[in-house]
Design a protein around this nucleic acid. Structure first.
Lengths: 135, 135
DNA sequence: TAATATTACGTATTACGTAAAGATT
DNA sequence: AATCTTTACGTAATACGTAATATTA
């Protein structure tokens, strides 16, 4: 049971159609079909009733769907929470740097750091224990 | 974010040690390490603080852990429910078969079917609309 | 030195896409 | 004929294990 298999499964359940699901998942339709078959093989039951018109959830499929959705949701929320946490890191960092070479590599580093941790106050020092200034 | 990465992540979180986690997951330790690094790369944050003694969850890791666990649990429960459902399919099936050839291929089919669906009553007919008997 | 995690790299697995074949309306 | 799914098969991506390289107690 792999993540992408669950994505494909959910898409087929939602659209009721392998081809449409494949388009939504941006994958070739036979590839999606293979992965659905593989998932069905692993759980030991057919998940869809394939008719010409549409792919309908079997009883096993209906039973499995909420679990698949909760997995996909948990994954998304996990990602989201960590992403949001980026902005919640707070504090101060005192950073010593040699004025002669700092301009060559510090700007890029500082820019990416401040994007990732806007809550952190960066303090760059020309030399230790003296003349600090906030960037 | 792949299923096995979440398994590895949960194992490291539980054992506090990459090597022990790798043994539990029956995978080489460098392979597990790679997958953890890959997961960290995807979510954009370190999930563990690596010290010599142990691997401790970072704030991001602590935030992510419950989601990972809920994913693994949902996967297990999905599998389990489908497995249990096998015994819940009920009904009757009327099956026509030619007595001359049925003995050669029916027994295996019937045996596996009854194992999978013990709640289904199989009725085999010697010839249509007459002399049915329950196997 | 011992115990740990990471990097390097070759191998084996596997998900993919294209093409062809079935199946059904 | 048209629409949809599965099968076949070669290719590309990737997870794996072994070995080597840090890193720190």
């Amino acid at each position: 049971m792999e993540m992408h298999q669950l994505r494909y499964f959910a898409a087929v359940a939602r659209t009721g159609n392998f081809s449409r699901a494949a388009r939504e998942c941006r994958v070739a339709q036979p590839s999606l079909s293979q992965q659905i078959l593989k998932l069905e093989d692993e759980v030991g039951e057919r998940l869809f009733e394939r008719t010409q018109r549409q792919a309908l959830l079997t009883p096993a499929g209906s039973l499995f769907l909420p679990h698949a959705l909760s997995i996909l949701e948990a994954a998304e929320r996990g990602r989201q929470e960590i992403r949001e946490m980026g902005g919640q890191v707070r504090g101060k960092i005192l950073l010593g740097a040699l004025p002669t070479i700092a301009p060559y590599f510090l700007p890029d580093i500082i820019r990416s750091f401040r994007t990732k941790y806007p809550g952190v106050e960066l303090i760059i020092m020309r030399r230790p224990r003296n003349n600090s200034f906030v960037v």
